[in-house]
Computed example of a mutant assay.
Amino acid sequence: MLTDSKMWREHESFCGGEHQSPINIDSSKAGVTNYPKFCFHNYDLVFPERLEKNGHTVELKIEEQGLHAELPFITGGGLTDRYNFVQLHFHWGRQLFGSEHTIDRKEYAGELHIVHYNTKYGNFIDAIPQEDGLAALGILIKLTDRDNLAFRHLEQFENIIDPSPVNSDVLHFSVPLVALLPHDTDSFYRYNGSLTSGDCNEDVIWTVFDTPIAISERQITRQVISSHGQPPRK
């Protein structure tokens, strides 16, 4: 769902701060900084995962019960601390454009957010109030003719659209997080912003990659139907 920060300000008073997300990124006004490369630790590992609908979007979380390996985490890329993976979620539009962020006013088919918390605060809840508490990766999604193989394993959205006390579904085939990253993670836009739902806490260090990942129209139609209950209009 395309979220406009102005709309949030109209409907949610606590979302009226000065550093709200999402934004349009004006590339002509962006400064150039040479950050160290991102390091995606344990992003290549396979963990037990589940999809969960939270009322706003569909989240993918790692099942921590029986977890022997460290959770995925990121360092580098201009971040001064270690940030552990919390969840990732998707934003689709009812039509074929549903990205939250735009670059030079260009909308994309969708957007994937991978959320992490700063480990120096101990846990996700304690990190939320801190100005450097969260780090989110924004990955834009464009349309292509071919299916994205990673998204084939995520085509269980329809299993969790029916409201129920346990509104989640375990993935039959887990997806390593590296499979959802763009092929170029060296070029990105960085700004300090907020969560785009809930209390819109202004504690997020945003990284929006300028290289999108691709998904087929068949796949995005399936996700939109699962999320909104109807196919996108052309």
Rank of each mutant, 00 (worst) to 15 (best):
E64D: 09
T119P: 02
P129Y: 09
H228P: 06
D132I: 00
E70L: 13
K234A: 12
G198K: 08
L45R: 15
Q219M: 11
N118T: 03
S187T: 12
L96F: 15
R94T: 10
Q87M: 13
W8E: 04
T207D: 06
R105G: 05
N42K: 13
E202Y: 02
S5F: 11
C15H: 14
A214I: 00
A69D: 14
E107W: 11
G122S: 12
P165R: 11
K120R: 15
L45F: 13
D126M: 13
G55V: 07
T57L: 04
R9W: 05
L67M: 13
L154D: 01
N159D: 15
V175D: 02
A136I: 14
D184Q: 06
T119D: 15
E107N: 08
T221E: 12
Q219S: 05
Y117A: 06
Q223E: 06
T80G: 07
P163S: 11
I225D: 10
W8S: 09
D132V: 04
T196A: 13
V178D: 06
I128L: 14
H68M: 05
A136L: 11
D162A: 12
L154Q: 03
G78I: 00
D81T: 01
E217W: 00
H68F: 07
H153A: 13
Q219L: 07
G193N: 03
S99M: 07
P165Q: 09
G229L: 03
V166R: 14
Q156Y: 05
H228E: 12
Y108F: 15
P232F: 07
R218G: 04
L140E: 01
